[in-house]
Amino acid sequence: MQISIENLSHAYGSVEVLNDINLTFEPGEIAVIIGPSGCGKSTLLRLMGGLEEPSKGAAYIAGQAPEGSFNPLTYIFQDFALLPWRSVAGNISLVLEDHKLSKQQSKAIIDDVLARTNLSEFHDALPRQLSGGMKQRVAIARALAVRPAFLLMDEPLSALDSQTRELLMDDLVALWAREAFSACYVTHNLAEAVRLGHKVIVLSRRPGKVRDVVEISIPLEERRERAVELEEVQQQLWHMMREEALAADRELADV
C-alpha cells in the first residue's frame, strides 16, 4: 500500500499551516518528517490518517491493505494515549474488540504483540505503574495488534528522556528488521531522523512546504556503528533547518 499526498494545503481560520504539499510514501520504508516547531508536521500526519480534513487537496491510498489488517492507517501518539483504567492487555484488547474476534484469537494477537515488544510480564500492569518508555512500548504493541499497513508516528519519543529514547530507537530498528513496516515518523529531533529514516522530508517554517527530501542509504541496522557518516547527514539536515528554526523561533505567536 502506498500513500500519496497531492496539492495539499491546510489552514486554521486565516492562518495557513501547510502549503501545496506533494509527497509519496512507499511501502516498507520509514519516512521521517522534520521541521521547526509549528511548521505543521503533526497536522500533516493528522491529515494523512483522516483525523482532520484538509482545506485543499487530499491524501490518497493506492493498492490494497494487506490481508487481515484491521486498521490500515494506525497512529502512535506522543502522549501514548493509553486508557489509565485498563491494564496493558486491556489497552490492546480495546482496539480489537470492535472486530468480532473470538476470545482465543484476540488472546493470541495480544500475546504475540506483547512478546514482540518484550512486554509479556507486564500483561496485567496498569499504565500508572509503567515508566514512559514502557508506556510507549505498550502503545507500539497496540498499534501492531491491528496489523497496520502504515504506522503514523507523531513524535513518539519526544516525551521520553534521552536514554529511554535510545533504547526505544533500538527496539524500533529491531522491529523493522524482523518485519519491514511502513511508517511516517514525525519528529523535531534530527538524531532520531537520521537513525530511523530511509528518507527525511524537511519542511519549511509556517506555512509548511516541502523544502527538501534527503535519502539515507545506510541500512538501519548498521547505523549505530556508522555514526560518523550519519553525523554528516545530520549536519547537512541541521544546516537546512537552522535558518528556518531561527526564523520560526523569532516569530510572534498571535494565532
Binding site: G49, L51, L73, T74, A81, L83, W85, L94, D98
Partner: peptide
C-alpha cells in the same frame, strides 16, 4: 481529547468510544 482521538484513529465505533472511553473517563 487525546484518548477520544486515539479511539477514532483505531476505527472504534461511536458507541464503543462512548462506552469504553468517555463513560469511564
Amino acid at each position: 481529547r487525546g484518548l477520544i482521538r486515539m479511539g477514532q484513529s483505531f476505527g472504534m465505533s461511536w458507541l464503543s468510544i462512548v462506552r469504553k472511553i468517555i463513560l469511564p473517563g
